[in-house]
Amino acid sequence: MKRDLLAKVIAARAARLPVAVITDLATGEERMVARSDAAADPLSAILDKAFRFDKSGVENTDSGEVFVTVHNPPLRLVVTGAVLIAQALIPMARAAGYDIWVVDPRGAFATGARFPDIALHAEWPDEIIPQIGLDQRTAFIALTHDPKIDDPALEMALRSAVFYIGALGSKKTHAARLERLKAKGFTDSALSRIHGPIGLNIGAVGANEIAISIMAEMTKALRLG
């Protein structure tokens, strides 16, 4: 691998630009292809599949065996609610490779002491979420229980391509939430993207176990769709 190729890959990832590196296994020669240029590439069919399923692998081509490495942008987790479940979830999500953003306009919750080393935003979701930019490598979770905070963020998540949307709350709370969002014009099929009550049903008790159930549900959405 050439140094300048390594630098280009690292720069692309920092800019959240999906790229692939194609290595000829016989010669060791390598080249980088941006996802935006993949359609025009001789290996377009292979590249399209690799980007969509985030799957690196060996492929046989007319010119021999190649290894295609997909560098999709890092996973991100955006959470509204600087609450106890968020405190439990963040270390796990970080270990699984997510960059974390916590949004909570309530200053008493969103403190650096409670969330060390985290991008913490004591602002309203409609101020900060458009700046974060929700994309297909992002998961969104609403944890405040407060419709004034969660609903506007959920609306933005529903209008985006995020791969996971979860909302904390009982069945009753969730039904009321869906009615409010329906009144805003969202269809049932759009609203079915929201996982609520949040998390896989593993009988979780307490913030730590709920965080595990959320992490499992997010992982399932990422890996199995």
Binding site: M1, R3, L6, S56, G57, V58, F67
Partner: peptide, 19 residues
């Protein structure tokens, strides 16, 4: 890490699981 090590003047190789 590879880039950081190179910047320190170290010689570097990368191994990748391909299959």
């Amino acid at each position: 890490i590879a880039a950081a090590w190179l910047a320190e003047g170290r010689q570097v190789a990368v191994a990748t699981v391909i299959e």
